[in-house]
């Protein structure tokens, strides 16, 4: 079992749900990265998804895109993020998951990225513009350095694809809860519960829900039929406002005993 999977399984073993906050590296400057990560792990998050800003984030909604624009304006690059993380890697106690579009990895060099990412505490990678069919270009290097490649499963994925994706996904399965892009939603459509149960039926790897989850109620709601949640835009928004109360309430919602 990979370190990332283990962290999620550990959370559920304690009767909690996994909670993975997404942060945009470099939003507010790279010197905020260390205090933010240390504070989040102190709150008891399961893992932390570290977003790498990109000029053309086609899978992201306005909140994360604007955070990327701010981070880019401060000169944030994939290289600088990895260097910053490596500088305090010995203080990082939860697995980090990098979310980056493919082109910065290609520019960095795939093998060098896998190696430096591992040394920076990154145990999983999510590449939103790289579907399974194209993943052979990065997978061997990631595997060699022990970094999981997390696959996304969408509502539009056909049953055959869901099976293929869940079997290929490492660390956890990132199950997208809505059609479209990241960002808060007030309502969710369709029978998500049976969709998630179907996904879980193919695999023992934990299934986490992400995209659109922004309230403690939604954290609890999705917790009833998944191993946990990923919260992105709401965390990014709260960090930009230095609103730690909201973040704490979201994390707490994942710790309520769910029957």
């Amino acid at each position: 079992m990979s370190q990332l999977t283990e962290a999620i399984v550990e959370a559920t073993r304690l009767g909690h749900k996994a909670f993975i906050p997404y942060i945009m590296a470099g939003d507010g400057g790279l010197d905020t990265l260390k205090p933010t990560i240390l504070k989040l792990q102190q709150l008891g998050v399961t893992a932390i998804e570290v977003g790498i800003p990109f000029t053309d984030p086609v899978a992201d909604g306005p909140t994360i895109e604007e955070a990327a624009v701010r981070a880019l304006a401060k000169g944030t690059t994939l290289r600088k993020v990895l260097e910053t993380l490596a500088s305090f890697a010995d203080e990082i106690t939860v697995p980090l998951v990098a979310m980056t579009y493919l082109n910065p990895i290609l520019a960095y060099g795939i093998d060098a990225f896998a190696k430096d990412a591992y040394e920076a505490g990154i145990r999983g990678v999510i590449i939103p513009d790289m579907p399974l069919e194209e993943s052979t270009i990065v997978h061997p290097s990631l595997k060699a350095y022990g970094v999981d490649l997390v696959q996304l499963v969408s509502l539009t994925s056909t049953p055959e694809r869901i099976e293929k994706l869940t079997k290929a996904s490492e660390g956890f399965i990132y199950a997208v809860t809505v059609n479209g892009i990241t960002g808060a939603r007030s309502t969710f459509e369709g029978d998500l519960e049976s969709h998630f149960k179907k996904i879980q039926s193919y695999t023992d790897t934990p299934v986490l829900a992400g995209f659109g989850i922004s309230t403690p109620e939604q954290v609890k709601q999705f917790g009833t039929f998944t191993s946990g949640v990923i919260v992105g835009s709401k965390i990014v928004d709260s960090l930009a406002k230095d609103d730690w109360d909201t973040i704490e309430s979201l994390v707490k919602a994942s710790k309520v005993q769910i029957l």
């Binding site: 086609v58 513009d129 579907p131 996304l152 969408s154 539009t156 694809r161 994706l165 997208v176």
Partner: peptide, 12 residues
Amino acid sequence: GGQFVPETLMTA
């Protein structure tokens, strides 16, 4: 070439 898109678009 190829198909470098989010999974949501793959089925389409």
